[in-house]
């Protein structure tokens, strides 16, 4: 999948889901993209570097979300 297409698809889907949650597991993203994990990873890594996605870590597990979305930022006093 082309990067721009992947980005558009992912942002669109994550925005739709924002009403209920803002953080997603890697596999959720790979499923949205319809790519195998290794291929999805390349796209997702680039989206992190481009600031389209950011990480959220529980310490033991990692999740992804769009920067500035969701309730964690306020709860963690890290609103930017």
């Amino acid at each position: 999948m082309e990067y721009e297409e992947a980005k558009q698809k992912l942002v669109e889907e994550l925005t739709k889901k924002l009403k209920s949650k803002s953080k997603f597991y890697f596999n959720d993203l790979a499923n949205i993209l319809g790519e195998k994990p290794r291929d999805a990873k390349k796209l997702i890594n680039r989206m992190v570097t481009d600031g389209v996605l950011e990480y959220w870590s529980s310490g033991s597990t990692s999740m992804y979300g769009m920067p500035g979305t969701g309730k964690q930022a306020a709860a963690e006093h890290e609103e930017k």
Binding site: V48, T49, Y55, S57, G59, M63, Q72, E76, E78
Partner: peptide, 14 residues
């Protein structure tokens, strides 16, 4: 869970 260094998903615990 938000804090970290740019581009890394691990290595920092908030």
């Amino acid at each position: 869970g938000i804090v970290g260094v740019f581009g890394y998903g691990g290595g920092v615990i908030g």
